[in-house]
Design a protein around this nucleic acid. Structure first.
Length: 260
DNA sequence: AGGACGCCCTGTTCGC
DNA sequence: TGCGAACAGGGCGTCC
């Protein structure tokens, strides 16, 4: 689930719940999630400190500490955050737990343990180290067009490549291409200027509206592909049977009539 | 450069 | 109905 709109929603959630409170201690249940640190390292960095700010880049969430260090969270395919008070509310599959002196806890929940937790001195340093592309919502039309000319492969793999553009995953990638009416297999050099502009507008529009919907599909329009992206699904525009193909190792859903 | 693949994990769905 | 196989919204490393 966690693509840009989901992670932005988590960022707001963390900012609304867990800022400015002293961390009593942390507990790591799944050390395999830690990148370049240890449970002890994480404990030392967080205990007796407070989160004072948040930042998001693509699918990465950064929580800034009063020590000038940052906790980095990536949610893999199934991660999420949950803030709670009572021990009985501790979510199943909690892999990492932050306990505050006010008695509340922030759980990093990930049934599949495919996420990542790390520490960094500065989000920008982490972003450069991982060679992430610009955040999908920070791009303007010009920048997107410039990026597009440097690429020769197919459009869907490009949208999903975090080193090209950061934040788009399989679900919203399909949604953007559907709304831009572009076949996911189209090659970038073959796109016209108008098509690139359409792609940019839809990328922005889909991501902004998904953020406004708090990444909850139930709050998104029925006319979106997201409602129909399943076996036997039909195009919400023309009712044609949707096609399902494999691109870049992931399932791509598209309408063979509307997307060219 | 970019695409295909295997792998990391585990819960759910599919298909015989 | 039951069971193993295939699949799921991510990312990384390797190979070609």
């Amino acid at each position: 689930m966690p693509e840009l709109p989901d992670v932005e929603t988590y960022r707001r959630y963390l900012a609304a719940t867990a800022l400015h409170q002293t961390i009593k201690h942390v507990h790591v249940d799944a050390p395999s999630l830690l990148a370049d640190t240890t449970p002890q390292g994480l404990g030392r960095a967080l205990a007796h400190h407070r989160f004072e700010g948040t930042y998001r880049h693509g699918k990465y969430l950064f929580a800034g500490l009063d020590s000038q260090r940052w906790l980095v969270l990536h949610f893999g395919m199934t991660g999420r955050l949950e803030y709670f008070k009572h021990g009985r509310d501790r979510p199943r599959y909690t892999q990492f737990l932050i306990s505050f002196t006010n008695g509340f806890h922030l759980a990093y929940v990930a049934p599949r343990k495919l996420g990542r937790l790390a520490l960094t001195d500065e989000p920008q340093v982490f972003i450069e180290k991982h060679r992430l592309g610009p955040d999908a919502l920070a791009l303007d039309m010009h920048a997107l067009a410039a990026l597009a000319t440097r690429r020769r492969g197919c459009i869907k793999s490009w949208l999903l490549d975090q080193k090209a553009i950061a934040g788009i995953g399989n679900i919203y990638g399909d949604e953007i291409l559907f709304q831009a009416r572009l076949d996911p297999r189209r090659r970038l050099p073959d796109l016209t200027k108008l098509e690139i502009e359409r792609l940019f507008r839809k990328m922005h529009d889909v991501l902004e509206r998904a953020v406004a919907a708090r990444a909850d599909p139930a709050r998104m329009p029925r006319s979106w592909l997201i409602w129909n992206r399943e076996k036997g699904g039909h195009c919400p525009r023309c009712q044609a049977r949707l096609c399902r193909i494999r691109i870049a190792g992931r399932t791509a859903w598209y309408c063979p009539r509307c997307q060219r």
